[in-house]
């Protein structure tokens, strides 16, 4: 694939090296040519010094033929604008913008940009590392207000039906692991102690889920 990366910070550099070593045609853009120093000597890709929101700089980086564009500077708004230029002006198929501010990320995601918020991802990973013995919360990338919850079946739900803990449009049990087997349960499936259940919920009903199934977060 032909991939253009804007922003040669830690993530941009590592991403460029990974993709380059996999044989992709990589071009990197950074305002500061010194930032290219982070790329190792083996880097085969092209390096363009310039402002990545400038359509001429994007064109020089080969955006007209690019399959993917990644906006990973430290400035959210620069990433948002550059991503939209790539998408709307050059018609790049896969465009990803890194956005630190989770609220801003949420909105631009809703407006159709493919976004990654390292703050949200990092915070949930750390939360899960600390609280792995209760339940795991995994924000869904494709649907910003939805989360996957993975938990051991709480005591008291043994013998209940999946239907009993579901709520239409808000809470749904999507997977169940029992004695090493993974199954997709139906409403009538009986829950057994020792099960690990995976639930998809709308984030705002998290308190209700906790009350409903007696999980302490």
């Amino acid at each position: 694939m032909k991939i253009v990366i804007m922003g040669c910070g830690r993530v941009g550099v590592l991403l460029a090296r990974i993709l380059d070593s996999e044989g992709h045609k990589v071009a990197v853009i950074d305002r500061d040519s010194q930032a290219f120093g982070g790329l190792c000597e083996e880097f085969q890709g092209r390096m363009i010094a310039g402002n990545g929101i400038d359509a001429d700089v994007q064109r020089e980086a080969g955006m007209a033929e690019a399959d993917a564009f990644v906006a990973a500077t430290r400035d959210d708004n620069t990433n948002i604008m550059a991503a939209q230029v790539a998408k709307e002006i050059f018609g790049v198929f896969k465009v990803i913008a890194r956005i630190y501010d989770s609220e801003r990320e949420h909105i631009f995601h809703e407006l159709g940009l493919k976004t990654i918020c390292p703050v949200t991802v990092g915070a949930f990973q750390i939360r899960n590392a600390i609280l792995a013995d209760t339940l795991r919360r995994i924000p869904l990338e494709a649907a910003n207000n939805l989360e996957l919850i993975e938990t051991a079946l709480p005591e008291g739900l043994d013998g209940k039906k999946v239907r009993d803990i579901q709520s239409p449009g808000e809470i749904r049990v999507v997977a169940l692991e029992r004695e090493g087997l993974s199954i997709i349960p139906g409403g009538d499936t009986l829950l057994k102690s020792g099960d690990t259940i995976t639930i998809v919920i709308s984030r705002d009903v998290m308190p209700r889920l906790q009350a409903l199934i007696g999980i302490k977060a």
Binding site: I53, D75, N77, T78, M81, A82, Q84
Partner: peptide, 8 residues
């Protein structure tokens, strides 16, 4: 003074 901020 920043077009990206004005856009957003």
């Amino acid at each position: 003074g920043h077009d990206q901020d004005n856009l957003v």
